[in-house]
């Protein structure tokens, strides 16, 4: 899984034993990853902030349960996905018409051509909105996060062929929509 979140095992071990500085290093290495997943699944900026905070608070409190059976990144993805799904479930119950994305948050960030970035965000979010949750999660992890099928299977604790099946059905839905044939 990508090389942007490298953090060595001794740091993880110190964080497991309650070292606050090691925990801070882990936060700063993985916060963007968790926030991104939370944002793509919840699609609400403020919710993504709350989900990210909740993920790291839970990580700190349950760190002793991390047994190195999977990578820390896989573990964090799993917590992030589950937290985001639960948050989205309650969010949808609360208000289905709530603002789907905080445009100003995108425009506020420095970078070239904010209008194009905003358009890309809106298009991607509109596509993700077409999908049932389990397919959306697989598309997010594969196409946006770049996880392999095996890694997605580990994060979601499902069979690798189930990953394939969800991706295929999700993409069929997107294709049908693009061709003006909603299923």
């Amino acid at each position: 899984m990508g090389g942007m979140n490298k953090i060595d095992e001794p740091t993880i071990e110190r964080a497991r034993r309650g070292d606050h500085r090691a925990f801070a290093a882990i936060y700063h290495a993985f916060a963007a990853l968790v926030f991104s997943v939370a944002l793509r699944i919840s699609r609400v900026w403020h919710d993504a902030e709350e989900i990210t905070q909740e993920v790291f608070v839970n990580l700190f409190r349950k760190f002793s349960q991390f047994g190195f059976q999977s990578s820390l990144k896989t573990w964090l993805y799993r917590i992030a996905v589950n937290t985001a799904i639960n948050a989205r479930r309650s969010h949808l119950r609360e208000d289905a018409r709530r603002l789907v994305y905080e445009k100003t948050a995108i425009l506020r960030e420095a970078g070239p051509d904010p209008a194009a970035r905003l358009q890309a965000e809106e298009e991607a979010n509109a596509l993700l909105d077409l999908l049932p949750q389990e397919q959306r999660v697989c598309i997010v992890l594969r196409t946006i996060e770049g996880l392999s099928y095996q890694e997605i299977a580990e994060v979601l604790e499902i069979n690798i062929n189930t990953v394939r099946s969800r991706l295929k059905r999700g993409r069929e839905t997107l294709l049908a929509w693009k061709q003006g044939e909603p299923k």
Binding site: A31, L39, F56, V57, A105, R117, A120, K178
Partner: peptide
């Protein structure tokens, strides 16, 4: 159709207040 729309997406970093919230909630 299926990959390109997602390629332009970025990994935005959470604002500093998220870390501040973690620190506060954990009493660090």
């Amino acid at each position: 159709t299926l990959v390109k729309p997602f390629e332009a997406l970025e990994h935005p970093a959470p604002p500093p207040r998220v870390w501040a919230g973690v620190v506060q909630e954990l009493g660090l």
